[in-house]
Design a protein around this nucleic acid. Structure first.
Length: 119
DNA sequence: ATGTTGACTTGGA
DNA sequence: GTCCAAGCCAACA
């Protein structure tokens, strides 16, 4: 069986990467939403931890589209340079002010929308 | 082996 | 709205 993300995949990380790569341009999601989509809502921290290692993943994951549940760019200091995360977002039409995604609620993309692709 | 830390979230006060 | 504590798993010292 290889239809469930997280259980058959090589690791929780790969599952996270797959979802992040599926985030549409110009949209954002949260760590918790990804964790929830994986059925591990309480492991949202792992999602963030996975992102810290995402820069070594291949193909690369658009980690800049993942923010915390408030729409805050908490991971921007993991980018080089730090402004890159915001730059990338703005490039996609997302407005970021004071490290916070404007209209976050509206731009929020629920990973569960593409869960079908993984079933 | 144990203890700490971390790109987090939730629930209760 | 705020602040605090707990829970999750992996990497590192």
């Amino acid at each position: 069986m290889m239809n469930k993300i997280g259980s058959d995949r090589q690791s929780f990380y790969d599952a996270v990467y797959d979802i992040v790569r599926a985030i549409p341009s110009g949209r954002v999601t949260s760590y918790g939403a990804i964790a929830a989509a994986l059925g591990a809502r309480t492991s949202s921290r792992l999602v963030g931890y996975a992102m810290s290692a995402s820069h070594t993943a291949h193909p690369p994951v658009p980690a800049h589209r993942v923010v915390n549940h408030k729409g805050l760019l908490t991971g921007k200091f993991h980018f080089t340079p730090h402004d890159r995360m915001q730059k990338l977002l703005e490039k996609e039409g997302i407005r970021v002010v004071d490290d916070q995604v404007k209209e976050f609620k509206k731009l929020f993309w629920d990973p569960k929308e593409i869960m079908d692709e993984f079933e």
